[in-house]
């Protein structure tokens, strides 16, 4: 069990690196989550509304949005990251570091989240929507007061999945200098063959994912009245 001793000896040096990496990861992921919700939620709502039999059927719009989402979803994240480099530079002035990583992270997660939103909204009982029409509700009222609240547990579950996916993307962003825990794993673990850093980042990532998942599960349970 000599590795425990070695770890104990090295821990004071490793801890600040890992802690800062964790903060960088959270920083990227939280901002990316914010943008993802900001764009992905309306996109998901539009996908459902423009559907045949939706609130505002528009097959052409639906086809275009669906195609955009599918393109976004089918690009591997690592490819997407390279593909949007110039946009990243345009928006953040750089292509390195956690702030720059927010751009590809958001772009990668928006279509992913939009599909999850679409799925969650589709679960809403059509009878309830029809009942709202019968009560004389406007379509926007139905979205705001029926569709979204009724789908809330599903939306939160989808959000948690998205955040977890963003954490995993953020580790990939580390590969091209995005910072965060992934960056540490690459720089220390891969390039210097330092297994201590490698496994420590793994443990940190697992803990972060676990915390977010548990928090999400509690929220979903609290919101669900089915």
């Amino acid at each position: 069990m000599s590795w425990i001793h070695e770890l104990a000896e090295r821990w004071p040096d490793m801890w600040p690196v890992l802690w800062l990496g964790t903060l960088d990861t959270l920083y990227m992921v939280l901002w990316a989550t914010l943008f993802t919700v900001l764009f992905g939620l309306p996109l998901g709502v539009l996908l459902v509304m423009t559907d045949r039999g939706g609130l505002t059927p528009a097959p052409a719009v639906k086809a275009v949005l669906g195609a955009i989402v599918n393109i976004g979803r089918s690009l591997p994240f690592i490819v997407l990251m390279v593909a949007v480099l110039s946009l990243t530079r345009f928006l953040t002035g750089t292509t390195l570091g956690p702030t720059a990583a927010i751009v590809p992270l958001s772009i990668g997660a928006i279509p992913f989240f939009a599909r999850l939103v679409e799925t969650a909204l589709r679960e809403v009982d059509r009878g309830v929507i029809e009942a709202s029409h019968a009560m004389g509700a406007r379509r926007l009222t139905i979205v705001a007061k029926v569709l979204l609240p009724e789908a809330l547990p599903g939306l939160i579950a989808g959000l948690v999945m998205t955040i977890v996916a963003l954490i995993s993307y953020s580790a990939m962003a580390g590969a091209i200098g995005g910072g965060g825990l992934g960056d540490i794993a690459i720089r220390y673990g891969y390039q210097r063959f330092d297994d201590y850093y490698l496994w420590a980042t793994v443990v940190f990532l697992v803990i972060v994912v676990q915390l977010i998942q548990s928090l999400g599960d509690v929220l979903v349970r609290r919101m669900s009245h089915r």
Binding site: D125, G127, V128, A134, M135, V146, E150, H225, R226
Partner: peptide, 28 residues
């Protein structure tokens, strides 16, 4: 929509909002 508000409707499968309490459903 205004005319529909003057016509109540009851549904076979109730069509209540599961996210709202009884009172909030009636208030909808």
């Amino acid at each position: 929509r205004a005319a529909r508000r003057g016509i109540g409707m009851v549904h076979q499968h109730f069509a209540l909002l599961s996210s709202r309490t009884v009172a909030a459903n009636v208030a909808f």
